[in-house]
Lab assay of single mutants.
Amino acid sequence: VTLFVALYDYEARTEDDLSFHKGEKFQILNSSEGDWWEARSLTTGETGYIPSNYVAPV
C-alpha cells in the first residue's frame, strides 16, 4: 500500500471533499479520476476526495 502525506492544510469545498491538516497520512483508494483522488485518512478514518497536488508519497 502506497501512503501519501499532506503537504498543506486543506478545507473541504464540497461534501465529497475531505478536509485535512499538514502531516496527515492517507491511503489512496482511487487515483484514476485526474487531479482529485479518493482517499482514506489514516488519522480520522474518513473517506473523500483530496487534491493530488496537496500530497506526496511517504
Rank of each mutant, 00 (worst) to 15 (best):
A39Q: 00
F4K: 02
L7W: 04
L42W: 09
G34N: 12
V55F: 11
Y8K: 09
T14H: 15
T2D: 12
F26K: 00
I28Y: 03
Q27T: 13
L42P: 03
P51E: 02
E38K: 10
A6W: 00
F26P: 00
D35K: 12
P57M: 09
D17E: 15
Q27D: 08
T44V: 02
T43D: 13
P51T: 02
P51R: 08
E11P: 05
G23C: 04
E11I: 15
T47Q: 11
S32M: 15
N30L: 07
A56T: 13
K22R: 11
E33D: 15
V1D: 10
E33L: 15
E15R: 09
F4E: 01
N30C: 07
K22N: 04
D17A: 14
N30M: 08
E11F: 10
S41P: 01
Y54A: 13
E38A: 08
L7Q: 04
R40C: 07
D35G: 11
L18R: 02
T43F: 10
P57I: 10
Y8M: 10
E46V: 10
L7I: 13
T44I: 01
S52K: 15
D35E: 13
G48M: 03
R13L: 11
T14E: 10
A6Q: 00
A56E: 14
G48N: 01
E15I: 11
G48W: 02
R13W: 08
E33Y: 15
G34Y: 11
S52G: 08
L7M: 09
Y8T: 07
G45C: 07
T2F: 10
G34R: 13
D16L: 14
T44E: 02
G23I: 00
L29W: 08
T14I: 06
Y54F: 15
G48T: 01
F20S: 01
A56Y: 10
P51S: 05
T14C: 09
Q27S: 08
E24G: 02
V5K: 04
Y8G: 06
W37E: 01
E33C: 07
L18N: 01
D35F: 10
E38R: 10
R13M: 15
T2C: 07
Y8W: 15
R40Y: 10
K22H: 06
S19P: 06
E15V: 12
G34L: 12
K25Q: 11
E38Q: 14
D17R: 12
T47P: 02
T47S: 10
Y8S: 07
S32W: 12
L42Q: 11
E15N: 11
P57G: 05
A12R: 09
S32K: 15
E38P: 05
A6M: 01
N53V: 11
F20M: 10
T47Y: 08
S41A: 07
V55E: 01
D17K: 14
W36Q: 07
G34A: 11
F20C: 01
T43W: 10
S41I: 07
Y8L: 09
N53C: 09
D16C: 07
E24Q: 07
Y8Q: 09
E11S: 12
Y10V: 02
Y49G: 04
S41T: 04
L3R: 04
R40W: 10
D16G: 15
P51N: 10
D9L: 03
T2Q: 14
E24K: 01
D9H: 07
T2P: 13
K22S: 08
Y49A: 05
L29M: 10
V1W: 14
G48S: 02
A56V: 11
N53R: 12
R13C: 07
N53T: 11
S52F: 08
V1K: 11
S19N: 07
A39T: 02
E38G: 04
W36A: 05
S52L: 05
G34S: 13
V55T: 04
Y54K: 09
D9M: 04
D35N: 11
D35W: 08
N53L: 10
V58G: 05
W37I: 06
G45R: 04
T47F: 08
E46I: 11
S52P: 08
A56S: 10
Y10T: 01
L18G: 00
L29S: 05
A6C: 01
N30P: 05
L42R: 03
T14Q: 11
L29R: 05
Y10H: 06
Q27Y: 14
T14D: 13
E33N: 15
Q27P: 00
F20N: 00
A6E: 00
E15L: 10
W37F: 08
Q27N: 08
K22G: 04
D16N: 13
G48I: 02
H21W: 11
Y54S: 11
E33G: 14
I50L: 07
L29Q: 05
Y49N: 09
E46L: 14
Y54L: 13
N30A: 08
E15W: 11
V55N: 00
R40A: 07
S52H: 08
N30F: 07
V58Y: 14
P51K: 07
E46T: 09
I50W: 00
E46H: 12
D9Y: 04
D16W: 15
P51C: 07
W36G: 03
L42K: 04
Q27L: 14
R13H: 12
Y8F: 12
R40F: 13
F26D: 00
R13T: 12
T47C: 07
T44G: 03
W37D: 01
E24L: 01
D9K: 05
G34Q: 14
N53A: 12
G23Y: 05
A56R: 11
L18I: 10
E38S: 08
D9F: 04
Y54V: 04
I28H: 01
T44P: 00
H21L: 12
L3Y: 11
H21V: 15
K25W: 13
A12K: 10
E46C: 06
K22A: 12
L7H: 03
E33H: 15
G48Y: 02
A6D: 00
N30R: 08
N30V: 08
E15F: 12
D9R: 04
A12Y: 02
W36M: 13
F26S: 00
G48D: 00
T44N: 06
A39H: 00
R13I: 12
W37K: 03
I50Q: 00
I50F: 01
S41D: 04
L18Y: 04
A6H: 00
K25A: 07
E15Y: 11
V55C: 04
G34W: 11
A6L: 01
S31Q: 15
E15G: 14
L3S: 06
K25E: 09
P57W: 06
A39N: 00
T2W: 14
Y10E: 01
S19K: 04
T43A: 12
R40N: 05
F20H: 01
T47K: 12
K25M: 13
S41V: 06
Y10N: 03
G45K: 05
A39W: 01
W36V: 09
K25R: 14
S41Q: 06
A12P: 05
T43V: 11
E11R: 10
D16T: 11
R13G: 09
D35C: 06
E24R: 01
I50E: 00
I28W: 02
E46W: 09
L3V: 12
V58L: 12
E24F: 04
L3T: 09
Y8A: 09
E11Y: 12
L7D: 02
V5C: 05
V5N: 03
W36R: 10
W36S: 07
F20G: 00
Q27E: 12
A56W: 10
D9G: 05
I28A: 03
S19L: 02
D16R: 15
I50R: 00
K22W: 05
Q27A: 10
S41G: 03
S31T: 11
V5T: 06
H21F: 12
H21P: 06
G48E: 00
S41W: 02
Y49L: 14
K22C: 05
G45P: 01
W37N: 01
V1G: 15
V5Y: 13
S52I: 07
Y54N: 03
L7K: 05
Y10F: 10
H21E: 11
D17F: 14
G23V: 01
T2M: 13
F20T: 03
N53M: 11
V58S: 07
V1T: 12
R13D: 10
Y54H: 09
T43I: 10
A56C: 07
E38Y: 14
N30T: 09
D17M: 13
G23E: 04
I28Q: 02
S31L: 10
T44W: 03
